[in-house]
Every structure is written in structure tokens, then in C-alpha cells.
Design a protein around this nucleic acid. Structure first.
Lengths: 333, 333
DNA sequence: ACGTTTGCCGCATACGTTTGCTTAATTTCT
DNA sequence: AGAAATTAAGCAAACGTATGCGGCAAACGT
């Protein structure tokens, strides 16, 4: 189409009668340091021409030279999951704010796929990685860290790595204490996958609080399902098949909670009169169906996990962080 | 950490006593053509060493040389939207299958942001772009195309561009004809943004079918809202404030439909007995709440939009495609 | 026997940046 | 006034890959 030849440092330089290096330094100088490299009027001339010609640095050439891509890879279980999509949005916003770009991939919580996609990102020379799918089981992340790959975790923690998570134990406790305060005594938990710290911590905090109030044993029925609506539906079937019908259900995920509510209503069981339901995350859908839930700061987690990674990349070190959850009482519990 | 020096074509070549070019050709040869470049045993030696040393092409260097990045940019309104996340998944799967990578960005349906993010992707030298946020208003896409940027559209169409969409007019007709068949006579439509072809086509098809059955005028009440649950809630408030209460509501989006259902139930209005509700897309949440909806082939749309782009990149041309929707009858209509 | 094809491979250059080192002119210091 | 320091640039070498072209054998054809 247009055969207009590319505008490069060289083309700018030759048009200005300058050397490439001078132009490069002027364009790349941190604001304030330009004066170190050229006279004010040269700086002006360069900037003007660059603007006029619409110069844009060739990132491939730059990366080749500097061996930094200004790219960070993000691995999530699945972007279809609203929670992870939102966390990713936080990450991407933070990256955008400092001129970097993110590349995201789904692992589907499959170790093989996680490894595959990660290696693909590394082959593309990302500077670092953020994992939203850390598993308590798999040692792959440890291996990566040992290889010297800069990485942080988000949403799920794993010991030995910098992570930014919601204080899920506290979140579980919030849910429990609310349900106890409404007089419920028999409980069921719809948990997610056992390899996820979110499952373990939320359910753990919940049980912990119950025990502190003398509730336990056969009065609490825990089911490991998935993180989506169908999983919630299925879990309800199992729960109701058990001996004692619970008075309240804690789902570690809003979508599972909504699936559960759907299943209950289909059976003519009233929520919250017969069975109360509490979810987790406070996604918009929770508000839409008036679900009582525990809010987790998703965007903030994403943002922070990126900043921590940046910190690692700059050799400034970083510490894990635990963000506070908040109970949002609506009409299902 | 490990100061192990990078494994490059050069390092492989020197270790093998070969020239870089030979190694390059062997490694990059299309399967089957290797024999053109070297003797069988040389090929074996190269491949073995490359494997042993874990050679991975430096994509920056390659891109610099070839001026192709094997990267495609994807712009969507918002990844938090399940529909777009799923479409993106289809795109990414297709890209992965042919060794390319995708970079995604949210435009939030804001023209300024769309332009900003697109230019950022172009600055990163993506080979082409897929837009999931095409607007019927904004001429930006036309401008891009005029600049010679290869692009395709997905989910939303715009004349003059290659797009892969659901046949939304047909989808709207399906919804209408189902509601008519259940005897409903007064309707409301919860539409999305007017600049989106999905809104226009779905609502348009719906109205078209109603008119063919002699329904129109004050018997159909159309509300332009958004694509999420809160928008559905808000729309219900407006709709019920109007003179005649409808017997059925068609929401052009499942999430809006669910918001609507939530709002109706909160008012003690029974679905579907008092008011029937039909959604669009058949997201998992629809199944969970037993929503009658129109299924659109999201993953397939994504996949195809990528293939079309690939086709354009290879100068093989491409045609727009319209995929068939399917009515999924559940219990809300 | 001599020219031609074929198989196998090396040479060299270019892609666009970044950055350590130099240089030439000008200013400042003593 | 002469030495030293500063200013304002230029030179050149990488970074790792892809690719047109050339070369040198050995095999082939007549």
C-alpha cells in the first residue's frame, strides 16, 4: 500500500545531519537529563522531526540490543473466570502506566499446559512472569525460581514465592461469623480445587471460626468441586443427598454460589429462609442476584502483583502481601 | 544467578564447526525441505545439539531481520465480559496452534482508549489486529485499514471490513418467534449500546419478526442500557415504570437478562409466569439459572476471526462470515 | 574428456538500537 | 595566558537472525 520507507533513528539522523547515537540519546533520555547530551536547540530539532515523522522506536531492535523486552507474561487458570479477568485488568493497568506490556495465557490449571505456556512466554523473552494459577502441589514454580526467572504470584500463594493475595483465612472467618450470628448451626462448604490456596485458606478460615464456636464434626459437610456455576449446582445435589440438610452453605466462589442458589430454587428450597448462602469475591453478578458475599480486592491484587514484580526486576526485592477482605451482607444470608 | 552464556545460532555453529547460516537454515526449514540445505547427518547433529543445549530462537533478532513479529493484537471492550473472554480464548487457541502469540487490550468501548491501545500495539509491531469492539460510529477502523494495517473484526461487524459474527438478526428472530409461540403479545427489549452491531442486529431481528406477526407500536418498549447485570436491573426499573407492563423481555445479553431476573424476583414478579425473559449468548451462568437464551458460537467466532486475519496476512484475501445462532429453551421463557 | 548439474555449505550484509569511548571546540579556572 | 574542565557531539561495535550469492567438490551427461 504505502511504500513509505520506515522512519528510523538513522533516517531522522541523516535528515538532521546528526549521528544516530545523538538522536538516540535525546529520544531516550529520562526527562530532565536531556541537557547532558545535546544543546537545547538540537534537542528541539530532534523532537520536532521525530514528532512530525511519527517516529516509533522499533522494540525488536531495542530488545535485541538491551536484552529486555519490557514485556511481562501472565499465566491465569482461565480468563473466562471473572475474577482472574479482573485481576488481569489490574495487572495490565499497572503495566500500561509504566510503559510495559503484558501477555496473558490460560493454563486451565493443567500443569502440563502451565509449563507449556510459560516456556512459550519465556521463549518470547518476557522479562518476568505473574502467576495466578499457583498450585500447592506442583513444584514447577520453584524450579523456575531456581532458574532465576523473576516471578510473583497473585490470588493464590505458595510458600517461598512473593505473592499478593486476599487474606482468605480472614475471609472464611468473616463468612462463618456472619452465619453464626444469624443462628445457623449446620453448615456445608462448597470448596474449589484442593491445590489452590484460595480453597484451602477460605475453607480453613471458615472451619476454624466454627470450631472456635464449638461447631464441627458431623455438623459441617465439605465438598471439593470447581470454581464455576455448574460445580455449585452439582455440589448442592451431593450435599442434599447427605444425611443432615445444612442450614447454610459457604461457597468459596460467587459463581459456585450462584449455581448453588439456582439448584436450590429449582428444588423449591428457599434462600435464605431454608438455607442461607454466602459467596466469595463480590463479582457484579453477586450484586445482581443479591448474594451475600466476601469482597476481595481483585484489581488491587493485580496492580500490586505487578509492582512487586517490577521491584524484583529492579533488584529492589519484594515482600508478600495480604489484602483485607470485606463482608458484604445482602439478602441470601 | 546462572551466568551460563546464552545459546545462540552462533554458539551452536561454532561448537559444531559449521557456519551460522547453515544452522539457521536447518532449524528454520519447513519440515520436508531440510534436505535441500544439508546432509542428513549434519541435520541430525544440528538438531541434537540444539535440543541438548535447549536452543530457543531469539524472537527479537528474528523480528528485526524479517520485520514480522508473529504477534497479533486483539482489542476487546473488556475481558471481564465473559463473552469477549471466550472469544479471545478462541483467538488465542488458533494463534497457539500456528505458533503465533496474541496480545490483548481492553478499550472499554472508549474511542480514545481504543486508539491509544491500538497504537501501542502497532508500536510493538504486531503483524495484524483483531477488533472485538468495532463501533458503527467511529471511523477509526477505516482509517487504520487505509493505512494498510491488516485487521479483522469479531463479534461486531462494520461494513467495509472482514468480520466474523453471529447472525444476530437471525438470533433476534429466534427469540421473538419463541416468545410469540408461547402467546406473549407485549414486549420489552433490553438492548446494549447503540453503536454496537450486536445491539442493532439482535434488537432489529427481534422487532422485524414481531412486525411480521403484526406486533409493534406501543406493544414493544425498547431500552438501551449496557451489557452487564446492573444494566439489566436498571432497565427493569424503567420498563416497569412505563404504562403497560410487558409479558416478555428480550435482553440482548445473558448478564443483562440475569440482572433483569434478579430485579423482577426482588419485586415479587414471577419469571416466567408474569414475565418471560430471554437472554443471548448462552453463557454458563445462563445454564446455572435456567435462562432461556440464544446460543452464539463464541469460541468458533474467535477462531475464525484469527484464521481470516492469517489469510489476509498471507495475501490470500478473506470474506466476512455469519455464524448461525441456536435457541436454547430453558425455564425462563 | 570436458562442460554441466547437483549437493553441501560458507561469506557477508542488513535489520534498528544502545552505549562505551573519542574528539573537537568552547568555556572556566588559576 | 595556559591548563583544565565542560559541552556537544561523532565513531564504532555489538545484539542474534535471515538470506542472496558464491564456491567447491563430486556426480552426471554426452
Amino acid at each position: 500500500m504505502d511504500v513509505t520507507e520506515p522512519v528510523t533513528l538513522k533516517s531522522l539522523a541523516s535528515e538532521l545531519g546528526l549521528n544516530v547515537s545523538t538522536v538516540s540519546r535525546i529520544i531516550n533520555a529520562e526527562p530532565g537529563t536531556e541537557a547532558k547530551w545535546a544543546s537545547p536547540q538540537t534537542i528541539r530539532r530532534v523532537r520536532e522531526l521525530a514528532g512530525a515523522r511519527g517516529y516509533a522506536r522499533n522494540p525488536h531492535a531495542a530488545s535485541l540490543r538491551t536484552s529486555r523486552s519490557d514485556l511481562v507474561g501472565v499465566i491465569v487458570p482461565r480468563l473466562q473466570d471473572y475474577v482472574l479477568a479482573t485481576i488481569y485488568e489490574g495487572i495490565d493497568a499497572a503495566a500500561e502506566a509504566c510503559g510495559r506490556m503484558t501477555v496473558v495465557a490460560n493454563s486451565l490449571d493443567d500443569p502440563t499446559r502451565q509449563r507449556l505456556r510459560t516456556e512459550a512466554l519465556l521463549a518470547r523473552r518476557v522479562d518476568g512472569l505473574i502467576f495466578g494459577d499457583a498450585s500447592l502441589d506442583s513444584p514447577y514454580l520453584d524450579e523456575l525460581a531456581a532458574r532465576g526467572v523473576p516471578l510473583t504470584l497473585v490470588s493464590r500463594r505458595r510458600s517461598g514465592h512473593v505473592s499478593v493475595t486476599c487474606d482468605d483465612v480472614a475471609g472464611g472467618r468473616l463468612a462463618a461469623s456472619h452465619l453464626l450470628s444469624t443462628g445457623r448451626q449446620r453448615f456445608a462448604v462448597i470448596a474449589g480445587a484442593q491445590y489452590a490456596s484460595t480453597t484451602v485458606d477460605r475453607a480453613g478460615g471458615f472451619l476454624e471460626m466454627l470450631e472456635e464456636h464449638g461447631v464441627g464434626g458431623s455438623d459441617v459437610d465439605i465438598h471439593y468441586a470447581g470454581f464455576d456455576a455448574p460445580a455449585g449446582q452439582a455440589a448442592i445435589a451431593e450435599i442434599l443427598a447427605a444425611h443432615a440438610r445444612p442450614e447454610a452453605v459457604f461457597a468459596v466462589n460467587d459463581f459456585a454460589a450462584i449455581g448453588a442458589i439456582g439448584a436450590l430454587q429449582a428444588l423449591g428450597i428457599s434462600v435464605p429462609d431454608d438455607i442461607a448462602v454466602v459467596g466469595y469475591n463480590d463479582t457484579p453478578i453477586a450484586e445482581a442476584v443479591n448474594l451475600t458475599t466476601v469482597r476481595s480486592p481483585m484489581v488491587e491484587m493485580g496492580r500490586l502483583s505487578f509492582e512487586k514484580l517490577l521491584s524484583l526486576l529492579d533488584n529492589r526485592g519484594a515482600e508478600s502481601e495480604l489484602l483485607a477482605p470485606e463482608l458484604i451482607v445482602r439478602s441470601t444470608a
